[in-house]
């Protein structure tokens, strides 16, 4: 297949090639010129904070960025403080934020003027799983037995502990209630670790802790996982306790409780970021996700390893926003 090109079009092509040749290094050349602030819209010690600090440490250890990165916690107002800060930093390429579900839930529940569209999606790092836990001294061997007991016990007799109010844990609790007809008393605490401890101390009857929040107590034999709120089992086969791996936990659907929920652990930039700026951070984060430290962290925390970027990521976020809108509307959690 050959065809002749006119002089003009050849010239244009040449110019095009030249232009691309010139602009490619220019595109790749964007790099931070000062310290990058890594905002955590939550307090110290939580899941998002841990992941942010891990990413910071990995970047520092492997020298993935020329400029330093600092983690700044802005957890006031269920994360609204951090998100409003990002919204106000429109066009500032030296700020990134790690999100959790409060990206959706906080604006919906409180009416704070903020939407994820005020940000530029960079990359999804992982999804956090949710597991239904009970104290190991209770007789419930699977989710069905437990839910039946809750139903038999009568409304509000069983206590579900969770992190925060009208956030992921309570939304998931509402979803369980809707699916099963059971009725819990939801008790909000400040952090995931505290929730797990309260379950060990039998101050609540069950929790929907993320794996990493409860794994230590599970290994010590104080807690028992009943089911995971995902469409398929977790892929991790290595034994965590004497006889169980993360992969041995059945999905809740298998147990007759058709509810699933995953939490976003993703990175965003402020609105108005240019494609080359986004590309820079995507590049750094891709490298982070290749390190052995990251892989170990992901496996220990039994994360869902879905990682998205670009349009796929934005579409996923948009879809999830709709999902949260629906779930929260059903549960009556929307701001009036």
């Amino acid at each position: 297949m050959t065809y002749r090109l006119s002089f003009r079009s050849r010239l244009a092509a040449l110019a095009g090639v030249l232009l691309t040749a010139m602009s490619v290094p220019a595109l790749a050349a964007w790099e931070p010129t000062k310290t990058v602030e890594f905002i955590v819209p939550a307090g110290t010690g939580g899941g998002a904070d841990q992941m942010a600090r891990l990413i910071q440490s990995i970047i520092a250890k492997h020298n993935l960025m020329k400029q330093p990165m600092v983690v700044v916690n802005k957890g006031g107002g269920a994360g609204a403080e951090g998100f409003l800060d990002m919204k106000g930093a429109k066009g500032d390429p030296h700020k990134i934020v790690i999100t959790l579900s409060n990206l959706f839930t906080t604006p919906l529940a409180t009416g704070v003027p903020f939407n994820w569209k005020d940000l530029t999606p960079v990359r999804m790092m992982a999804l956090d799983e949710f597991v239904l836990w009970v104290n190991s001294e209770t007789p419930y061997k699977n989710a069905k037995e437990y839910v039946d007991a809750v139903k038999a016990g009568g409304a509000n007799k069983f206590k579900m502990g969770g992190t925060g109010s009208k956030q992921e844990d309570q939304i998931l609790t509402a979803a369980i209630e809707k699916q099963s007809g059971a009725k819990f008393t939801y008790i909000p605490y400040k952090g995931g670790g505290e929730v797990a401890t309260q379950l060990v101390g039998k101050h609540v009857d069950s929790t929907v802790n993320n794996p990493i929040e409860a794994v230590a107590q599970w290994r010590a034999g104080s807690l028992r996982p009943l089911c995971v709120f995902d469409t398929q089992r977790m892929p991790y086969k290595e034994k965590v306790t004497k006889d169980m791996a993360w992969g041995d936990i059945p999905t809740c659907k298998e147990a007759g409780l058709d509810a699933n929920y995953l939490m976003l652990r993703g990175i965003f930039m402020p609105g108005g970021a240019t494609p080359d700026q986004v590309a820079y951070y995507v590049g750094v984060l891709e490298k982070v996700s290749q390190t052995p430290e990251w892989k170990k962290f992901i496996e220990e925390g039994a994360f869902n390893t879905t990682a998205l970027k670009g349009k796929d990521y934005a579409d996923w976020v948009a879809k999830n926003e709709q999902l949260h809108q629906n779930l929260m509307k059903e549960a009556g959690f929307l701001a009036k």
């Binding site: 310290t35 602030e37 600092v70 700044v72």
Partner: peptide
């Protein structure tokens, strides 16, 4: 300690922003 405080023109000249 890498605690960023509000910076002004001189720091900008020195390359800190």
């Amino acid at each position: 300690f890498k605690v960023p405080l509000p910076k002004g023109p001189i720091e900008a000249l020195l390359g800190f922003q």
